[in-house]
Amino acid sequence: MANSTEEQKKFHVSATDAESFVKAVLRGNVMPDDNAAVVAKCLVAADLRGVDTHGVNRIPSYMARIREGLLDGKASPDIHQVDGKNGFGFVAASRAMIAACEMAKVYGIGMVSVKHSNDFGMGAWIAQQAIEEAGMMSLVFTNSSPAMPAWGSKEKLIGISPLACGAPGKDRPFILDMAPSVAARGKIYKALRREEKLPEGCMTVTIAIL
């Protein structure tokens, strides 16, 4: 049962207000308006979908990466091969999916790779973009740095490397967003922040990434 102090720490805001707040933070860190709108929409969409590990709570870590020079908030991707220019992965992924859908309209299939990019949050939103903007099915993949141990080991060796796919449906679209890990790193970090216990089976992942 939550105590009164914990209850006072919770703030309920509308999705519109949350999106406006995120855009303001990003613009305040010299991110172009159009790019800030893409990132804000994706982060709030993650929260609305219940994937709060990839939602607005990522903003502090993104801002830290900008301040440390690990992420270029001003970058806008090139479309030719899609060069993310070390900018936000949301923007590069969004433009890559637009380009892939345009190819598919002409050739029946479109495939785009992205280089020099960063985290793009949950993969579901990219598949959703293909459905909503082009009525197309899609597959989304990404590589990642070592974060998981191989079976029976304690050292980081394997990347999380999530994947997502989506397709239009008669009543509602089909979207699958998953990864081979036991749990998302964001869920472990969230448990640490809230001083919550991890469910059984997460310990091997915890040893590998903390």
Rank of each mutant, 00 (worst) to 15 (best):
V39C: 10
M97T: 01
Y107N: 14
A100S: 12
F90S: 02
Y62K: 11
E68P: 04
V91E: 09
A37E: 13
D83P: 14
V82D: 03
A40Q: 06
V91R: 01
V13F: 13
T5I: 13
H80N: 06
I66Y: 04
L26N: 00
K23H: 03
K9L: 09
N57W: 02
G89M: 06
V38F: 05
V30P: 00
N3L: 10
G50D: 08
E19A: 08
D47Q: 06
G84Y: 08
N86S: 13
A75D: 12
N29Y: 05
F21C: 13
L48K: 13
C42T: 07
G84Q: 06
M97R: 03
A100N: 05
R27Y: 00
I98C: 03
P60R: 06
N3Y: 04
V44C: 00
I59W: 01
M31K: 07
M31T: 15
S94E: 11
D47N: 15
G50H: 13
R27V: 15
N57E: 07
V51Y: 04
V30H: 15
H12D: 02
G55M: 11
M97N: 02
D52H: 11
R65G: 00
H12L: 13
V22G: 08
R49K: 15
G69Y: 11
D52A: 01
R95H: 12
Q81S: 13
T5Y: 01
V56G: 01
A46D: 10
S4D: 12
A37N: 08
A99C: 05
V38Q: 09
Q81T: 14
I79Q: 00
M103G: 02
A36D: 10
G55Q: 08
F21G: 05
I59L: 14
S61N: 10
G87M: 11
I66W: 00
K105T: 12
A45K: 06
A75H: 06
G73H: 02
G55R: 08
K41W: 14
L70D: 13
R95W: 08
E6S: 10
V82A: 05
F21W: 14
G89F: 03
E102F: 03
M103C: 11
E6V: 05
V22A: 08
K9D: 00
H12W: 09
H54V: 07
H54W: 12
G55N: 04
P32M: 12
N35Y: 10
P32N: 09
R95P: 00
T16P: 00
Y107D: 12
D78F: 08
C101L: 05
Y107W: 10
D47F: 07
A93R: 01
D47H: 05
K105A: 15
F11D: 01
T5E: 11
R67C: 01
P32L: 13
V25E: 09
G50M: 09
A46N: 10
A40F: 06
V82Q: 01
A40M: 03
E102I: 03
R67L: 11
R49I: 07
D33W: 04
S4L: 14
N57L: 10
P60Q: 11
A92W: 01
D78I: 07
L43W: 05
E102L: 09
Y62P: 05
L48A: 04
A46Y: 08
